[in-house]
Design a protein around this nucleic acid. Structure first.
Lengths: 335, 335
DNA sequence: CATACTAATTGGACCGTTCCAACGAAAGAA
DNA sequence: TTCTTTCGTTGGAACGGTCCAATTAGTATG
């Protein structure tokens, strides 16, 4: 029953050579005679030999594995970023080990610890919740890149993010060009990314001479929170809502419609992130699109660079976002 | 630079005891004197000692890791199932190792192989693309549970799925009770799950005496494919579309609306899966909801059971789906 | 024909754990 | 006192690979 997995030794005895030669053959070394090679490969196949990654990792002191922590797989943003680095890492012979921590911040630390126990050679962290101190501690042990955050300044941590300030400028400029002035920002709550986007909103409003129209309603990054924040914002009848992310923006639209108003005829809405969901014709959300897969790709690139030459300086990669105009923004209503 | 990670030996010399005692102390054995224990723990902390999972796994011949293969993280269905088992497994001291293969079936095999190399103690597979033969081969090596599929019959493979036939009956009965008779099914393409749902549709139609109204339009499980299939289906002016999954249903709605028809006044639409996305007020999709997190929980339960007593018979867990009535279905138009 | 060299193969140390058999010291029983 | 027990502790053998230095066989060079 469930006979023990065959090891390299079993292959060796079966093919009548030493285990060293098997190792050599299986790693494709050229210094193995064709005869032996053939015999060994045959034996390995017949036994169903599969190398033990733990043993190898122990021996060579490399795991060829990158640990990935993702805040929450429900937000499609993360799935798309994942696409970006998964394939990139795979191409370079690395495996990714993916963990999520649900909504428990303590667990998050725990999961990172587990990844380190597995001797991952690098860490990609996508969570706007991790405190900078933790990131710092981790980065001492292993190359670390933080994605979608720009608030971490450390000589040992790479960051890959889009330029939220510039992105918000795109959003506001777009609304202003449509004649809007009463533009309210529904914030994403208390986290670095949302703070930055709120600042981007304020700066852009000021730059457009709308300083006195600045109004920020505290919200969150979920549909429900977007709904609530929008409901509150509507009491002052703005003509446009600039929302912290797409999911919340979808909630905001619902709030507007259930208040008996139309989007975009009465109120325009613009989101942020550029999730594919927003492209669904039923939603058709105008947004500021981050280059999500590119973000992932660059993260992989940074990690690979750091893994191969650990001494290089950390880099802060900024990608620019782009305006994606769809159907939820329109000319400001002429009151 | 980047001094080598401290090992159990380092902790031993630092605290002046043997490595064996350190191992004992760190595993919380009661047969360690309080004095030594304290010294050891202090040393471990100061050195920042972290056990090497690869070495442990090699030594105890257990990895305490479950491998998970997910078809595609973009479909929110999978994220929700994931939630279900992730926490369950964690509670029982298991780590999950998650991989996806994008849209490349060959890579999928590759990834499974990698998981096995990592000596995972069990495998949770969520992919309706894996051929039964592969599943069988894998299940010989390690306890395997297949989620959201019911077409696998093997003494060694557990399956956890919802009852698609019963679910489809709910959908059709609902539409019939609203007076619909011209109900077209937009299929999900050529895969086991979609076949089953198509059969469920036909059976339920027949059971309602609507055998001659049966019509199936080939589609797919993405929004775009739902859109195209709906566009085709509309040429015959059905009063209701019963779609293979929620994402495709959302596409179908878009097709209906861009044909100048209203949902549900002119055409009703019902999906399948019960993704949270469908609850967004902008979408408000009537659907047949699978108990997604429960599906995940049960998968974990099966795996844990099999890991702990490998001889038990495999089980086929069926959970029932429930009708979720929202805004995309309504009375059949009185022509 | 000895010598040098190359090609193919091998034993053994090592990676960082766990775990078991064995050990010394102290304590209890005879 | 001597013999068991118990407690705390220890060395060393696994686990399954990799890799280096050493060995043998075979071939070319002088």
């Amino acid at each position: 029953m469930s006979s023990n997995r065959p090891t390299i030794r079993d292959v060796a005895t079966k093919s009548g050579v030493s285990k060293s030669l098997v190792a050599l053959a299986l790693s494709g070394s050229p210094k193995v005679s064709p005869t032996s090679r053939e015999r060994i490969e045959k034996a390995a196949l017949e036994l169903g030999y599969r190398p033990n990654a733990a043993a190898r990792s122990l021996s060579v002191r490399r795991s060829r594995t990158i640990g990935v922590l993702i805040l929450d797989l429900h937000n499609p943003v993360f799935a798309e970023i994942l696409d970006g680095f998964q394939s990139e890492l795979r191409e370079h012979g690395f495996t990714t080990m993916l963990v999520t921590a649900g909504d428990n911040p303590v667990l998050e630390l725990n999961e990172i610890d587990k990844l380190l126990q597995f001797q991952v050679e690098g860490l990609i962290l996508i969570s706007h919740r991790l405190p900078a101190s933790v990131l710092h501690d981790v980065s001492v042990e292993v190359p670390t890149v933080v994605v979608t955050r720009d608030d971490i300044v450390s000589a040992r941590i790479d960051t890959v993010s889009n330029d939220d300030l510039a992105g918000m400028t795109l959003a506001i400029d777009h609304l202003v060009s449509l004649g809007h002035t009463d533009i309210v920002h529904l914030s994403g709550g208390d986290n670095p990314v949302s703070h930055l986007r709120a600042k981007g909103y304020s700066d852009a409003m000021t730059a457009n001479g709308l300083k006195k129209h600045i109004r920020i309603v505290p919200g969150g990054l979920t549909e429900a929170k977007g709904y609530r924040a929008a409901a509150e914002a509507l009491t002052h009848r703005p003509t446009a809502l600039c929302v912290a992310n797409d999911i919340a923006a979808i909630g905001a639209i619902a709030a507007i419609e259930s208040a008996g108003l139309r989007v975009p005829e009465d109120v325009s809405v613009i989101g942020y992130d550029g999730i594919t969901l927003g492209a669904l014709r039923r939603i058709n959300l105008t947004t500021v699109g981050q280059p999500l897969t590119e973000l992932g790709r660059r993260a992989a690139e940074r990690i690979l660079d750091r893994v191969h030459n650990p001494t290089t300086e950390s880099q802060r990669v900024h990608l620019s976002a782009e305006l994606v105009v769809r159907g939820t923004t329109g000319p400001a209503p002429t009151s």
